[in-house]
Structure formats: structure tokens, C-alpha cells
């Protein structure tokens, strides 16, 4: 695509955000209604509950070209489905360890509890996250993943750079 972000322009972080329907997605709507301007770098994917978040979604997002992933759920104790956010937190904690072992800065993936009324918090987190990823620089996992696929899984097992 001719207008692909980052071609002929200084690099801009690209972030994928997974927001739960009941708290964080609603909070992002509220930020919109209140016209709280924030960094345009995160693209939001709506899921019903942060508990739906398969860690592979995050890995896929990074592999497909995202420089960071933001996860938004209800505050502990406030989950619309009682405890989906706790399940998400458990998986997130494990995933961060895995990222570290893969050589990806774990802070590229961030989890935040944002309630439906906290539009200002969406603004703050979006800005913080964008600036943080900007400092970390591009992830560039996409070409590496492609190279790895070309070498076959065997190369990865032998410790090919990922």
C-alpha cells in the first residue's frame, strides 16, 4: 500500500489494543464523547471480556507488525463476568516471561484496568504507551518471523534469532 504508515515518514509506533466490551471499550467511547485527544497509534479490537484474550492473539499481533500490545479490562473485582480479568492477568504474567525469553521487551505488552467511567485514564494510558514504545523503537518482528518460517521450524529450535 502506498500510504502504509512509516513509509517515507519518520517511524510511528503501531499498537494493537484489546479492550473488554464492558469497561475499557466503554471508557474509550467516553474519552471520545468527551473529546479527550490522545495519541492515534493504537488500534482497538473489541472482545467481550479480557478473559477471552488468548496469549496467541498477542504473539500474532507482534508477529504481524505491531510494536506493542495494550490490554484493557475491568478493575479486579469488577469483571462483568465475575473473574475473567483475573484469568487474563494470569495468562499475561506467564506471557511476559515468555516474551523475555524470546528477546522481546516484556513492556511492549501492557495490561491496564480501566473502568467505564475512566475516559481520562484511556487518554493517559494511550499516550504513555505510545511514548514508551516510541522509546523502545520498532520491533521488526515481521521480517524475522518470515525468515524463520523460510528456514523452517528446525532453525528456530536451534536458537535462530527471533
Amino acid at each position: 500500500m502506498s500510504d502504509k504508515l512509516n513509509t517515507n515518514k519518520p517511524w510511528e509506533p503501531r499498537i494493537i489494543a484489546f479492550f473488554c466490551n464492558w469497561c475499557t471499550y466503554t471508557a474509550a467511547d467516553l474519552a471520545g464523547t468527551a473529546r479527550m485527544v490522545y495519541a492515534p497509534n493504537a488500534r482497538v479490537i473489541r472482545i467481550m471480556c479480557s478473559g477471552r484474550l488468548d496469549p496467541q492473539f498477542i504473539l500474532t499481533a507482534l508477529r504481524e507488525g505491531a510494536d506493542g500490545v495494550l490490554i484493557g479490562g475491568c478493575h479486579p473485582g469488577d469483571c462483568h463476568y465475575q473473574e475473567g480479568n483475573y484469568k487474563a492477568l494470569r495468562r499475561f504474567t506467564l506471557l511476559k516471561r515468555l516474551l523475555n525469553e524470546m528477546g522481546i521487551e516484556p513492556e511492549r505488552v501492557r495490561m491496564e484496568w480501566i473502568a467505564a467511567s475512566e475516559g481520562d485514564r484511556v487518554q493517559k494510558v494511550m499516550n504513555e504507551m505510545t511514548e514508551h514504545i516510541r522509546k523502545l523503537g520498532p520491533l521488526h518482528l515481521e521480517p524475522k518471523a518470515a525468515a524463520m518460517a523460510a528456514h523452517g521450524a528446525g532453525a528456530a529450535r536451534q536458537g535462530a534469532p527471533v
Binding site: 494493537i16 479490537i45 472482545i47 467481550m48 471480556c49 478473559g51 477471552r52 484474550l53 488468548d54 496469549p55 492473539f57 500474532t60 499481533a61 504481524e64 505491531a66 462483568h80 463476568y81 475473567g84 484469568k87 495468562r91
Partner: peptide, 29 residues
């Protein structure tokens, strides 16, 4: 319809209507 079980299923046998794995993977792409 929270989908917590779907995310945990190790064999991908569990799916969630309107939020299937292939729907979300392709949305990511």
C-alpha cells in the same frame, strides 16, 4: 459469552460465536 474458556482451550475445540479465533486473528491482521 465471556470467552474465558475459549482462550484456555488447548486444542482449539472451544469457540465463541461472534468472537471465533479466526475472526479475531484476521481482525488483528
Amino acid at each position: 459469552g465471556c470467552g474465558t474458556c475459549v482462550a484456555a482451550c488447548p486444542s482449539g475445540a472451544l469457540q465463541q460465536n461472534l468472537f471465533t479465533d479466526e475472526q479475531i486473528y484476521d481482525e488483528i491482521k
